[in-house]
Amino acid sequence: MQNSHSGVNQLGGVFVNGRPLPDSTRQKIVELAHSGARPCDISRILQVSNGCVSKILGRYYETGSIRPRAIGGSKPRVATPEVVSKIAQYKRECPSIFAWEIRDRLLSEGVCTNDNIPSVSSINRVLRNLASEKQQMGADGMYDKLRMLNGQTGSWGTRPGWYPGTSVPGQPTQDGCQQQEGGGENTNSISSNGEDSDEAQMRLQLKRKLQRNRTSFTQEQIEALEKEFERTHYPDVFARERLAAKIDLPEARIQVWFSNRRAKWRREEKLRNQRRQASNTPSHIPISSSFSTSVYQPIPQPTTPVSSFTSGSMLGRTDTALTNTYSALPPMPSFTMANNLPMQPPVPSQTSSYSCMLPTSPSVNGRSYDTYTPPHMQTHMNSQPMGTSGTTSTGLISPGVSVPVQVPGSEPDMSQYWPRLQ
């Protein structure tokens, strides 16, 4: 039975679970980093996980050691009161100082060594604690504590007292930064006198190289990059290397530039699409467009005044059976039934097929058609009795279509119309 579990990581490298990497692998990681390889490249070359490479390099940059820390136990506290007071002093002298600059000053002034120097995250935590204590304490208590930490007896009751030896409130920041720059020169002199001055200088240079600022491109470089971006948004590694040799930039910087440029292009394309949609959409909808001609068919113009009344309900007709019959029939052209047409008796099958359309009241044959006459024609229609054979009435077949029909004066039988409509 094995005491430890061995495995293979996602890159194909072998590791022992819970145990640190061998010293030979750690040394190779540092050597590759000094030669300029990126952590992701080191991870692929040595088949070590990216997190492990970053952790080893980060500890090497901070402490200069590649040895693993002790497994188990607690780390001794490195942010001692003396170190905290120095950090507060540096922050007062130059409020814009960075944590890694404070760390360098602690090393250069001999406050800490490589073994007990606090990390950048520890210094940031100390600065946050100082800021929170400043908010919790009152103004007087804060000034007393700062005077105690600074070891001075001057008056701290006013704002300019934060910067000793100065009279203009805006000047101390520059003086403090100048003092810090002077301390940086002392850093070089002190570290050069040490035993491991060369190694420390190499480590600091490598650290500065990794902690780079934003790349500033010249106009020629920007023009070359934009020209390549117009050709393709995704250049391959050969195109990037050719462009890197042409404009004297690292291939990694060119790759990052193209990634950022593609993101910018997507944002601009989104804005262009929004403007295009806004320009195509009308600002207001016309009133006429809300009524579609496919839904509402136009009603033909009436030929006679009587045809303006298109349904039985508008003429005072309360018989719903006839109203439904007229509205359900398709529109037909106007025609006239003459008196000489043969009077065919209704076929029983045809009569039964339209039995649902006729009223059940037996008085329908005896009703006159003056009910369908509009009010303004009552006088004219009353002067001509319906009993004469020459009287013409208008029957409504569908809305908007008038059918003048000659009705025999002897017997106005409704059943004569249905064979004609089939």
Rank of each mutant, 00 (worst) to 15 (best):
Q2G: 09
Q2P: 12
S4H: 13
H5C: 10
H5D: 13
S6H: 07
S6F: 04
S6E: 13
G7Q: 05
G7D: 15
V8K: 12
Q10W: 03
L11C: 06
L11D: 00
L11M: 11
G12L: 03
G12A: 03
G12E: 03
G13W: 02
G13C: 03
V14I: 09
F15S: 03
R19S: 04
R19I: 08
R19T: 06
R19V: 08
P20V: 01
P20A: 10
P20M: 01
D23S: 06
D23T: 05
D23G: 13
R26Q: 00
Q27E: 14
K28I: 08
K28P: 01
K28W: 06
I29H: 02
V30E: 03
V30K: 14
V30W: 04
E31Y: 15
E31S: 11
L32E: 03
H34A: 15
H34E: 12
S35N: 11
G36T: 04
G36L: 04
A37V: 06
A37C: 07
R38E: 00
P39A: 15
P39Y: 15
D41C: 06
S43E: 01
R44F: 01
I45V: 11
I45G: 15
L46I: 11
Q47T: 05
N50V: 15
C52Y: 02
C52E: 02
V53Q: 01
S54G: 15
K55R: 15
R59M: 05
T63I: 04
S65C: 15
I66W: 05
I66F: 13
I66Q: 05
R67F: 15
R69L: 10
A70W: 05
A70E: 07
A70F: 13
I71A: 06
G72N: 00
G72H: 00
S74K: 02
K75Q: 08
K75Y: 06
P76V: 09
V78S: 04
V78P: 00
A79E: 01
A79Q: 04
A79D: 00
T80F: 06
T80E: 02
P81S: 11
P81F: 09
E82Y: 06
E82M: 09
V83L: 04
V84N: 07
I87Y: 01
I87T: 10
Q89D: 09
K91I: 05
K91A: 00
K91L: 01
E93V: 12
E93N: 10
E93I: 09
C94Y: 13
C94F: 12
C94I: 11
P95L: 14
I97C: 07
F98N: 04
A99Y: 01
W100L: 05
W100K: 08
E101I: 10
I102R: 01
D104G: 12
L106G: 02
L107C: 09
S108I: 10
E109W: 11
V111I: 14
T113S: 12
N114M: 11
N114E: 12
N114R: 11
I117C: 08
P118R: 02
P118S: 05
S119P: 02
S119I: 01
S119L: 00
V120L: 05
V120G: 10
V120T: 00
S122T: 00
N124Q: 00
N124W: 00
V126G: 06
V126S: 08
V126T: 15
L127V: 10
R128N: 03
L130P: 15
L130T: 07
S132P: 12
E133N: 13
E133Q: 07
K134F: 11
Q135F: 11
Q135P: 14
Q135V: 14
Q135E: 09
M137L: 10
M137C: 07
A139D: 12
D140H: 10
D140T: 08
M142V: 12
Y143Q: 12
D144F: 11
K145V: 07
R147P: 07
R147A: 13
M148F: 07
L149N: 14
N150Q: 15
